[in-house]
Design a protein around this nucleic acid. Structure first.
Length: 463
RNA sequence: GUCCCCAUCGUCUAGAGGCCUAGGACGACGCCCUCUCACGGCGUAAACCGGGGUUCGAAUCCCCGUGGGGACGCCA
């Protein structure tokens, strides 16, 4: 049997980071088993679905690198199929018409809550034929769910989960305006798409019982279910908008690498011994849905950031220069691009995000005179300027302009001037980089070149 | 409230009854490397929610409690 999984987000504005993990698990499981991974947009909530939101989901999946098989399915285009399924159940006596109004049902639920009961439909139209007064009125179609016994889901993650059928009420299949509900749509679409494994957030676990019954009523075998725990925020509650960074675009726009996010998300609720850095190939080889933990995991930005730093260090220089460009304040010229490529080995160990990488790289691309931060200014005013003035003539005569030669020069100069090496380097750093943190100054001087180096030093010495 | 799920360092986790004096990673702290900041290396502190069982033996199995989470829509 070929395994077919799907990711079925509803387009509500952005691609939720928890959704990305769900998609990742679906993707990985299908790849691991040599199956297919499908995408279905659950856009049946006409009020909330927008083309922009659909685009955000697709762009987000592309960015994170989760490709799906076949055409994207839009649930809204399948309504005829959904409605036909409801009609079938109605004809078979497995569903019935309910004439209760929304107001009436709200009142019913209020009453139940007041009595401390679980609010649920009381089946008032389950075995009742409409009277004459109702016959022309709008009605909803409800599923005639079994009321006795129990339903058990053998969940691949949660294990056997049992619920008493008495707990489940008769869900609505078709609204009074004739449109299908989510419960009906998922089931019909999963059948039509040949989904064998439903891997989704465990906020759907309760729904699974109803969907299972519905599928069986429609005469099909139920798929295997795997309800994975939700991602929680630092406070332990379901990750939501108030936690801040919930959309994938946040991570993309703040300089995270897709491979880092993938690796991080994979390790949330799943592990392979003590392995932390896991390649895509290893993930596909090792991942099994039954190994996913049952407890929810909290999202830890620090760990993601550390992982991102690791992947940045792994990434080759040329790719980093391209990736960091959107974070640069000005477009690169041929000269600055070359400097960045040459300086990148020293730059990339100093940044954990592309955004930071762009920041620590600024001094290579800024036009003279480069701005100095407060600490750099302090170094220059506390004697640094005079030290620089002394170095400039000596450096001007330096012929071999490569890091090792410059280091030899600096040591010799320090000895001769009675300055410790650190004392020689600090003003150079301040003048050349405008700060007190930088890559090795010898490397910086080499990359900048003699002319630019001396020009910057003169800028500061004379300021 | 009712139903369902969960429970190992601050966080992510390893752990399938003896391998556990509980391992790794992030974070924290200290040291080393060093022209600064990073990177890297070394090290320290830090956890089995509580109570009962079962067993020769329990982080691992069972029960109860407690705590946390999720679901209870003519939303998806």
């Amino acid at each position: 049997m070929t395994i077919v999984t799907r990711f079925a987000p509803s387009p509500t504005g952005y691609l939720h980071i928890g959704g990305v993990r769900t998609a990742l698990f679906n993707y990985l499981y299908s790849k691991h088993t040599g199956g297919k991974f499908l995408l279905r947009i659950e856009d049946t909530d006409r009020a909330r679905s927008t083309p922009e939101a659909v685009d955000a989901i697709i762009a987000g999946l592309r960015w994170i690198g989760l490709d799906w098989d076949g055409e994207t399915v839009f649930q809204s285009k399948q309504v005829d199929r959904h409605r036909a399924a409801a009609e079938q159940l109605l004809a078979e006596g497995k569903a019935y018409k309910c004439y209760a109004t929304p107001e009436e049902l709200t009142a019913m639920r209020e009453e139940q809550k007041a009595k401390g009961l679980q609010p649920r439909y009381d089946g008032r139209w389950r075995d009742k034929a409409p009277s004459n007064s109702q016959s022309g009125q709008p009605y909803a179609v409800r599923f005639k769910a079994p009321q006795e016994g129990e339903t058990v889901i053998h969940d691949l993650v949660q294990g056997a989960v049992t619920v008493a059928n008495a707990q489940l009420d008769d869900m609505i299949l078709l609204r009074s305006d004739g449109t299908p509900t989510y419960m009906l749509s998922v089931v019909v679409d999963d059948i039509d798409m040949g989904i064998t494994h439903v891997i989704r957030g465990d906020d759907h676990l309760n729904n699974a019982f109803r969907q299972y019954q519905l599928i069986v009523a429609l005469g099909h075998a139920a798929p295997a279910y795997a309800h994975i725990p939700l991602i929680h925020g630092a406070d332990g509650a379901k990750l939501s908008k108030r936690h801040g960074a919930v959309g994938v675009e946040f991570y993309r726009d703040n300089g995270f690498l897709p491979e880092a996010l993938r690796n991080y998300l994979l390790r949330l609720g799943w592990s392979h011994g003590d392995d932390e850095i896991i390649s895509d190939a290893q993930a596909i080889e090792w991942f099994d849905i039954t190994d996913v933990n049952r407890g929810a995991a909290r999202f830890d930005m620090d760990k993601l950031t550390a992982l991102n730093g690791h992947y940045i260090r792994q990434t080759d220089v040329a790719r980093l220069v391209e990736l960091m460009q959107p974070f640069m304040t000005a477009p690169l010229t041929d000269e600055t691009r070359l400097r960045l490529k040459q300086g990148m080995p020293g730059l990339k160990t100093r940044a954990k995000t592309l955004k930071e990488l762009a920041e620590v790289s600024q001094f290579y691309v800024r036009p003279r005179p480069i701005p100095l931060d407060d600490k750099a200014k302090a170094i220059l005013s506390e004697g640094g300027r005079a030290d620089l003035a002394g170095m400039i003539p000596a450096l001007s005569g330096q012929a071999a302009w490569a890091a090792p030669a410059l280091e030899a020069w600096a040591k010799a100069y320090g000895e001769q001037a009675g300055l410790k090496l650190g004392k020689v380097m600090a003003p150079l750093r301040a003048a050349l980089c405008g700060s007190t943190a930088s890559p090795s100054m010898f490397e910086v001087m080499e990359v900048l070149g003699k002319d630019e180096t001396l020009a910057r030093l003169r800028d500061s010495a004379s300021a």
